[in-house]
Amino acid sequence: MTETAIEFRSVVKRYGTATAVAGIDLAIAKGELVTFLGPSGCGKTTSLRLIAGLELPSEGRVFIAGRDVSRDPASARNVGMVFQSYALFPHISVLDNVAYGPVIRGTPKAQAQARAREILEQVGLGGLEARLPAELSGGQQQRVAVARAIVQQPDVILFDEPLSNVDAKLRRKVREEIRSLQRRFGLTAVYVTHDQEEALAVSDRIVVMDKGRIVQVGAPADLYERPATPFIANFIGDANLIAGQVVQGHFTAPGLSLALSGPDGAATVSVRPERIALRAGGDAQVTSVSYLGSRMEYGLDTPAGEILVSRPITEPRFAAGDRVSLHFDPAALIRVA
């Protein structure tokens, strides 16, 4: 049984008549990196700010390290936060930025600065202490923001879309840095993003949110391979959603009949594009072809509707107008409704 670092109990947050968070329950274990993922307006950032204390819940309670902090302002909690814009103080040096928290909390200045130097060294910014934030590159600023957030050994470190201001090329590198720092310091981390690929890459667990509610919680592979709802299937990766009927262990849709256990009745299944094989000749027609470098993507017109298929570049290729047949891997069929 692992220790719980953060817990939401029936938390609701309203702004006037609008409800941003519509009642969530969640426990985050110590040392875990959990990502809040969802479309804009789903309540993921509000949930993060509820942990930080930048918002207080309208209903329900928030616990950090076993303590009820529902009424505590941000300044009374021990959290570190990395902001989307980094929010480095432009008028003081990098060193003073990192030493700011310890000084506020009463550490003598010299000691705070020594600690800040140490952390800056560890994130690879040794020698840049005297610079102003504006004199650093974007990636360096990001590391200062992380150093500033972890210098006080917070109960939790919060990342609010930390990669949105990083060049597309650098994102993979920065994301790996964040992950390795989090592991190295054994930090509990909560990460907010709307980018599903980023979420899959960094998380221990992903919390998918929609319209202020949690839709599904699970490890990246769980969510991708066993989405619980059509929304999740569509939101994480690409998915073909096929509507049909389940009758005695078989899923049938126009032109399709595949083995699928489960109760009889109307059903929607999700199939990932890369789990469908194509052979020449059949009742489906290729309507669009996209060459993506690492793979081919085909848009198909089939009796069951439009289907997206993704195939390795090494396979024989088809052209628009070709007739093909579809071959499903039975294990790839996930019933989502």
Binding site: G53, L54, M81, F83, A87, L88, Y100, I104, R148
Partner: peptide
């Protein structure tokens, strides 16, 4: 940017 003030708050100010 308002988040600079929020950063200060999360650090205990």
């Amino acid at each position: 940017d308002r988040s600079m003030e929020e950063a200060s708050q999360t650090m205990g100010a």
